[in-house]
């Protein structure tokens, strides 16, 4: 079954720039998809439309059965609870410990304290940070901070994990570490992962599905693709 379906999607920003032209896509449940393309190719816009940071100007974006374009502002949280999001800049709260940062995601949606504890520790174990639960983000390396962010994104066991350049600030070694974590999540939890990146090496090594965008057009959608120019 398709988890994500885009039909004739067009996104035109208010300043007149069109980021996406007539995009049609279907992404299966459980898949691991890279979205690649140069700057301004529309990959960030695509990711943003999937978590409804941006609304498409035309067409349909369906994520897990929800029509994102028709989702009212007040109801956005329903979509957000079904997915996890990881950014290039981690977006952790510096005054909270690793544990509290991850727990924050569950507290916000009103989970019970006992449940929070179990889920948070499980998520931190999955990203290999169980020994750092009481550290503050400031004391962690970039790779570790990103793993905390991933733990926060998966703690609610979402169907979909969106990653917007998660390795953008990391060196190749740390980047591969992150990719291993993501692959484990994809296989272990069955979470669908969509990752925007411009890191050729990662894409070539991972041999996953690849969506290539150029100037807002879909150029290629390949199984086991590579970063082709």
């Amino acid at each position: 079954m398709d988890l994500i379906r885009l039909k004739n999607v067009e996104k035109k920003y208010k300043n007149g720039v069109t980021a996406i032209y007539d995009l049609n896509l279907a992404i299966e449940k459980g898949s691991f998809v890279f979205v690649i393309g140069g700057s301004g190719s529309g990959k960030s816009t695509l990711i943003k439309m999937l978590y409804r940071e941006e609304k498409p100007t035309k067409g349909q974006v369906i994520v897990g059965g929800l029509d994102v374009a028709k989702l009212k502002n007040k109801k956005v949280y329903k979509l957000r609870r079904k997915l996890g999001i990881v950014f290039q800049d981690y977006r952790l709260l510096p005054k909270l410990t690793v544990y509290e940062n991850v727990a924050f995601a569950l507290e916000c949606i009103g989970e019970k304290k006992d449940d929070i504890r179990i889920k948070v520790l499980k998520a931190l174990e999955d990203v290999g940070l169980k020994n750092k639960v009481h550290e503050y983000p400031g004391n962690l390396s970039g790779g570790e901070q990103q793993r905390v962010a991933i733990a926060r994104a998966i703690v609610n066991d979402p169907k979909l994990l969106l990653c917007d350049e998660p390795t953008g600030n990391l060196d190749p070694e740390k980047s591969m570490e992150i990719m291993r974590v993501l692959e484990d999540i994809n296989k272990g939890r069955g979470t669908t992962i969509i990752m925007a990146t411009h890191d050729k090496e990662i894409v070539n090594k991972m041999k996953k599905q690849v969506i290539t965008l150029k100037d807002g057009h879909l150029v290629r959608f390949k199984q086991k693709g590579t970063y082709a120019e």
Partner: peptide, 16 residues
Amino acid sequence: RKEIEIMRLVGASNLT
């Protein structure tokens, strides 16, 4: 502001 942004991302309702 940062906290609120994250709250939105992780699916806190507007009321929350």
